[in-house]
Design a protein around this nucleic acid. Structure first.
Lengths: 205, 205
DNA sequence: CAATGTGAACTTCTTCACAGCG
DNA sequence: CGCTGTGAAGAAGTTCACATTG
């Protein structure tokens, strides 16, 4: 069950959601593959890791497959999310509607800036990071989005683990150390840009 | 030369930059590995893809390795960057100082919102996306950061390719189709969150 | 003696070909 | 007849062991 297979499932789900709204009933592995930039066999392999959802000779029924994928990905429930770091990136994420649509609801926002503490974003009062425990007693979250400066990230992550967070999406340019049983996904734009740079280094100018 | 090896090089470089400021002269593959969350042999394998930079029995000299890595990654030059999409995410990226520090300079900002066009961000006047060609004649860019809504992303990417962009970092939740010779890196937070959800789906509650 | 550099073993992921089935 | 489901082949990436060398 590779990480990349899971990521592709998420892409398949997105494609199916876009399709459903267009009224398509059936989709072939080939077509789905085209939409997410992979191949038919890859799609079938990925899906077959979790069962047989298709009909031979026909393809996959869009709606049921969508339901199955949501289920597999753990998206048929609500996830409570804590946002740590109410800077510009945090602001962008809070305003981003598709997280909530997909079941991720921000219930707690924490920051250290005294100017921000007490103000409300989307109806949620921003609390101080030092009072994380208190904030979590009121509004516990299973997942956290970490959007603080690099220097503050590891401490914040430690605190999050202490209050029971089981998954962290980290936007700070630091590799977090977390104990077993806590999942971390790194979104590292510097790394992405630098790998672009590598790809272009001999092609350009 | 795997994608993941390149990403690790970028992490090694970051670690080395942090170290250099602390005055450490020599680093072992083991130590470097620890800082980025991998293993000594992995570090040595990755580096050996590009040459032998270490001293047996000793380790790697921090500063020269840093220089070599910058070179390998194509970071010993300046890259001009066009930002398409001056929403909240765009705002966060423009304000983020480490892009510029690492040689990526935003020279053009484009958006479609009439309210924004003409205003200045970091001294750069926001232009209309429709006049991309004109904007690029004035301030050409090799790389683009795409931070527009999903529906607008493919059209914007097509336009960017037409004006000569060779690499795109895409933040829109869409898989872009681009011709051969154009590199795309996807930063897809929905996918990251959903793969977190998958990891937690049976562990939590 | 300590840590690199690397071929070889191993493991994981992807591609392929085709049997199976509606 | 068409498209899925899958075992087997192939490719890619990682780990390991150790010979090498300052």
């Amino acid at each position: 069950m590779s990480e990349s297979a899971i990521r592709r499932l998420s892409l398949y789900l997105r494609a199916l959601e876009e399709m459903g709204d267009d009224g398509e009933e059936i989709v072939s592995s080939r077509l789905l593959a085209e939409r997410v930039g992979t191949t038919g066999p890859q799609v079938r392999k990925d899906l077959s890791l979790f069962g047989s959802f298709g009909t031979r000779g026909l393809g996959y029924a869009v709606r049921p497959l969508r339901v199955r994928l949501r289920d597999i990905l753990g998206l048929s429930r609500r996830w409570s999310v804590a946002l740590v770091g109410a800077g510009r990136i945090g602001a962008a994420l809070v305003a981003y509607p598709s997280f909530r649509e997909r079941g991720f609801e921000i219930v707690t926002i924490l920051d250290n800036d005294p100017e921000k503490i007490g103000t409300r974003w989307n109806g949620i009062a921003i609390g101080p990071v030092e009072r994380m425990e208190e904030a979590f007693r009121r509004n516990p979250a299973e997942v956290a989005i970490l959007a603080v400066p690099a220097e503050a990230a590891q401490d914040a992550a430690d605190a999050l683990v202490r209050v029971g967070v089981r998954g962290i999406m980290n936007l700070a340019p630091v590799r977090l150390r977390v104990p077993e049983g806590v999942a971390v996904k790194h979104v590292d734009m510097a790394v992405e840009l630098e790998s672009l740079s590598f790809a272009l280094r001999h092609l350009v100018r």
